[in-house]
Design a protein around this nucleic acid. Structure first.
Lengths: 191, 191
DNA sequence: ATGTTTATACCGTCCAGACGGTACAGTCGC
DNA sequence: GCGACTGTACCGTCTGGACGGTATAAACAT
């Protein structure tokens, strides 16, 4: 049905890439329980055999997701450092669903969070998440000298992530923009 | 073997209560995938039949957890308002694993987060989580007049929660105490 | 007081279905 | 011909849940 036999098998739009996209979507919207191999294959419009051609086990699918997370994290960190409005502005802006990162880090991060459970493959997910966090904090530190303040900014971003996860980002009628402004003022005051 | 036929079936130490405890522990440590009825029963030292006597389906187990969450949230909010060091201090203190809330809110919250997926029972979990958040924010607002600042404090707490979930609470060598102090100074400055 | 009934609090077994994974024959485009 | 698939047919394991049974305590009737 779709174009077959093409090279460059992990380019955007390729079957492999669509599988990863579908896996992310299912993880975010339905959690680990809904992300079965059958469901992922159906959502990616790929046959189950086709899915298992690219990822020969569920563990390998998870590995693929983690690889994508590392990759996107590196690319996001680069964009963060290069942002004209500054790293902090970039970080806060992309921590909220509407203005998700251009490389899709937010989606991949949220999906990975869902499989970061106890032992086995979840262990690896937690470790990767920790590296991503460490990278983000390092980038923040280049702009915010005070380590406590840098951590505070990151925690606010994390809180925003968690809110996205529970599906209620705007709790008290306060917009992320106002929060952003307040944080910037605080940062300016105690430079 | 144990005393049978006794009243007061949801007192602490009762089989019903132990089942809920075990369910929480398994959700936190292994995620939804590990929290099977068999595993919960085994961990609570109850037979599977016994578990299904108290909670006649998995959905009912979830409902039991949500009920406990609402209950503990209410009790925690009361303690928060009554804390001699203030609501903010209480909130920050209990957002970190070491100083978990005396009513066990942190554990129940973290466990519920794990089942807050897409549709079905997860929907109810998300709604309950949202109410708990709203209650917490309301309590914070009684002490912090500025709604933006109140939300900021809550988000920092949420970030700490998320860190607990991924299992890496102390990222950059900064202790929660230092964070606590910084936040208090900020709050004092812009009162 | 004694026997009967009822409710509570479990235990242990069984089963249908779902899930991850395998195997393999065939198709399509470069 | 080779890489990238599709599609179908399976298999073993695990899971949720149904079911029937058992022990104890309390309420009731006589």
């Amino acid at each position: 049905m779709a174009g077959r036999g093409q090279r460059n098998e992990n380019a955007p739009g390729s079957a492999r890439d669509r599988v990863l996209d579908a896996y992310e979507t299912l993880l975010i919207e339905q959690g680990p329980g809904g992300a079965t191999l059958d469901a992922v294959a159906a959502s990616a419009e790929v046959s189950k055999g086709g899915l298992l051609y690219h990822f020969n086990s569920k563990e390998s699918l998870v590995a693929g997701l983690l690889e994508r997370l590392r990759d996107r994290s590196a690319r996001d960190a680069a964009l963060m450092r290069a942002d004209p409005a500054g790293a902090v502005a970039y970080y806060l802006r992309t921590s909220v669903p509407g203005g998700g990162s251009p490389v899709g880090l937010t989606r991949t991060y949220l999906a990975t969070l869902r499989i970061a459970d106890g032992s086995g493959p979840g262990e690896a997910a937690r470790e990767t998440l920790a590296t991503v966090d460490a990278d983000g904090l390092a980038a923040l530190r280049e702009e915010i000298t005070d380590p406590v303040l840098a951590w505070l900014v990151q925690l606010v971003g994390d809180g925003l992530y968690l809110r996205t996860l529970t599906g209620a980002p705007l709790t008290g009628g306060v917009s992320p923009d106002e929060l952003h402004d307040a944080l910037r003022t605080i940062l300016a005051d105690r430079s």
